[in-house]
Amino acid sequence: MSRKSLIQRNNKRHKLENKYCCIRQSLKKEISKIYSKRKKWEINVRLQSLPRNSSRIRLHKRCFLTGRPRGNYRDFGLSGHILREMVHACLLPGATISSW
């Protein structure tokens, strides 16, 4: 299990990212349309005034069950060893694991 404080920190970042998503996208679109350096600078200052944790790049994918930050499969949202255990227990239909 991952530390609960790290999981809560990541959940907080998810909420901030959802809250400021539209604002961040609209500012980035404005920057791409404008040619004046002064206007771009002003928009960039507004973009930087948003909370740092509201950026999508700061999010970390974690295992749904254990909270493990590494070795996650996007399709299932699980880490590798949990996925393997579930396949062996026949909890994931259609998934086969090789054994020899």
Score class of each variant (00 low, 15 high):
Arg24Leu: 03
Leu92Phe: 05
Tyr20Gly: 04
Met1Pro: 14
Ser32Gln: 13
Gly71Asp: 02
Glu30Met: 14
Asn44His: 12
Ser5Arg: 06
Lys4Met: 00
Lys39Asp: 10
Phe76His: 15
Arg3Ile: 00
Arg70Ala: 00
Trp41Val: 08
Arg84His: 08
Thr66Leu: 00
Glu30Ala: 14
Ser79Val: 07
Ser98Phe: 06
Val45Phe: 09
Lys29Glu: 01
Lys37Ile: 15
Ala89Phe: 02
Ser49His: 05
Glu30Thr: 14
Arg84Pro: 00
Arg70His: 05
Thr96Leu: 11
Tyr20Lys: 06
Val87Lys: 14
Glu42Thr: 10
Leu47Thr: 02
Gly71Ser: 10
Phe64Met: 12
Ile7Ser: 03
Lys28Thr: 05
Ala89Glu: 13
Gly80Trp: 07
Lys37Glu: 15
His88Cys: 07
Leu78Pro: 03
Ser36Phe: 05
Gly71Glu: 08
Ser99Asn: 10
Ser2Leu: 03
Ile31Phe: 01
Phe64Gly: 09
Gln48Lys: 15
Gly77Glu: 11
Leu92Gly: 08
His88Glu: 11
Lys37Cys: 11
Ser54Asp: 05
Gly94Val: 03
Leu91Cys: 11
Cys21Ala: 14
Glu85Phe: 02
Ser55Lys: 15
Gly77Pro: 05
Tyr73Lys: 14
Gly94Leu: 01
Asn11Ala: 04
Asn10Glu: 13
Cys63Ser: 08
